Simulated assay, not measured.
Amino acid sequence: MDGVSFDLKRGQTLGLVGESGCGKSTLSRTLAGLITPMAGELQLDGRPAPLLGERKPHPVQMVFQDPYTSLNPRCRAGDLLERALIVAGIKEKRERYRIITQRLDQVGLSQSSLEKFPHEFSGGQRQRIGIARALLTQPSLLILDEPVSGLDVSVQAQILNLLVDLKHELGLSYLFISHDLAVIRYMADDVMVMHQGVIVEQASVHDLWAKPGHPYTCALLNESAACPHPLTEPGPVWRLAY
Rank of each mutant, 00 (worst) to 15 (best):
D145C: 01
V4P: 09
R103V: 10
A188I: 01
L14A: 13
P234C: 15
I159M: 05
V191F: 00
I159Y: 14
G21M: 11
F117W: 02
L8T: 08
F121D: 02
Q158E: 14
L31A: 05
I35R: 01
G11E: 11
S20V: 12
I86T: 09
D105Y: 04
V153N: 11
V107I: 04
L160M: 14
T69F: 06
L27M: 02
L27A: 01
K56S: 14
A32E: 00
I131F: 00
T30R: 05
T13S: 14
S112R: 13
M194K: 09
G11S: 11
Q61P: 09
R74M: 01
E223T: 12
I131G: 00
N222R: 11
L81R: 06
G21W: 14
M1N: 04
L136W: 04
K24T: 06
R126V: 14
L144R: 10
Q127G: 12
P139D: 00
L181R: 01
V183E: 09
S110Q: 08
V205I: 07
Q61E: 09
S113C: 09
S178M: 00
I129P: 09
N161T: 03
K56A: 15
I35M: 15
H214Q: 03
K9N: 12
R239P: 12
L16T: 07
A88C: 01
P37G: 09
P139R: 02
T137S: 15
K116V: 12
C227N: 15
Q125G: 13
A225H: 04
H58N: 15
L44W: 05
E223V: 05
A219I: 01
A132L: 15
Q202N: 00
F117Q: 03
V107L: 02
L8G: 06
G130M: 08
E54K: 03
Y216K: 09
D180M: 01
L34E: 04
